[in-house]
């Protein structure tokens, strides 16, 4: 059976999905990136391969799509047919899950976005700017500060009686505000619910500024697992919030759907997928500062079995394009 793979390499998690030829989900995987995207992709592929073998699935990868902030890296490692930005990928996946969707709220590890869809076309979108306040990493951090698992932290907000008001503009302020409230004797559920309210308020004011948020509203991305956040959005928007079944891997699903779309439209091209053997490849990354001009570009190089695979980061393009002439490199 032909199937399509989507890989979403995010700041916090790396997600891999496998779709069948109709576009339905066969398998999904959510692994923490832990700051090592290459490792995460290899680990993820390995798990997928094991799963395929264990279940005796007859699967032929007919297309691969990558997305997320590490999409370029992942594309080089596994060989991708489609390399798409997160916004398009999330929109496609949301429309696939909820065909009549008009608003997509997506909060991930480092960024949060809102996508406005009208007539099944992205009409408008916004992403958080320079600052990552109010995204998954911050919630993670707060859960860790309170020595709670993120799951427990997420449910705790639902027990709140009277959520306190927390400043949500900046995560540094939010944290000190939380500490003040806690020292004044407010109980934890009230503080956490207050935090969720603040983050939602911040999201709607900053990212969602001036956008017409119409139902159906889909909430996806890793933070959609957080029940406190779901409830806070429900309250703030006074509308039903739809959490798609595979909310945490929507980016990957979108990438796979886009790969599928492309391969179906171009029947005569073969997938660029390098096969599961990439998990055994010895991949190494090296960075250096090019000192040939005052720009001092930080160039990244990726090696596969000591052969240069790709390079980027230079402004002039000299390194990116000059791959051919590069010899093997000693990594010791």
């Amino acid at each position: 059976m032909k199937s399509y793979m989507g890989i979403d390499v995010g700041s916090v998690s790396t997600n891999i999905v496998l779709l069948d030829d109709k576009g339905d989900l066969i398998e999904k995987l959510y692994v923490r990136t832990n700051g090592q995207p290459i490792n995460a992709v290899q680990k993820g592929l390995k798990k997928i391969e094991e799963k395929i073998k264990a279940n005796g699935w007859d699967v032929e990868i007919a297309g691969v799509g990558t997305t997320g902030s590490g999409r370029k890296l992942a594309a080089v490692i596994v060989g991708a047919d489609v390399v798409k930005n997160e916004i398009t990928a999330h929109a496609v996946a949301a429309m696939n899950a909820v065909p009549e969707v008009q608003t997509v709220i997506e909060i991930g590890g480092q960024d949060s976005k809102i996508i406005i869809i009208r007539n099944r076309v992205v009409a408008d979108f916004a992403m958080n700017t320079v600052c990552a306040a109010g995204t998954g990493s911050f919630l993670d951090q707060q859960a860790a500060r309170l020595s709670l698992t993120i799951e427990k932290f997420s449910r705790m907000a639902l027990n709140a009686q009277t959520p306190v008001r927390i400043a949500g503009r900046c995560s540094v302020f939010a944290e000190s505000d939380m500490i003040h409230k806690q020292q004044m004797g407010h109980n934890l559920p009230d503080i956490i619910a207050g935090l969720c309210d603040a983050l939602v308020r911040n999201h709607l004011n900053n990212v969602g500024k001036g956008k017409e948020i119409l139902s159906p509203i889909v909430f996806q991305g890793g933070v959609a697992a957080n029940e406190g956040m779901r409830e806070a959005f429900r309250k703030a928007l006074d509308a039903e919030i739809i959490i798609p079944e595979n909310f945490e891997v929507m980016g990957a699903i979108g990438a796979a759907l886009l790969a599928r779309e492309k391969m179906l439209q171009n029947k005569d091209i073969k997938t660029a997928f390098k096969g599961f053997s990439t998990i055994n490849c010895d991949l190494k990354v090296r960075g250096f500062e090019c000192s040939e001009c005052p720009n001092l570009c930080e160039v990244v190089e990726i090696y596969e079995n000591l052969q240069i695979l790709a390079r980027w980061g230079d402004r002039c393009g000299k390194w990116t394009e000059g791959i051919q002439e590069q010899k093997n490199v000693n990594f010791n």
Partner: peptide, 16 residues
Amino acid sequence: TRLEAFVDMLARRGKH
């Protein structure tokens, strides 16, 4: 990422 998504949006809009 933002520019790409923006141009994608224009492209998909045009198509539809």
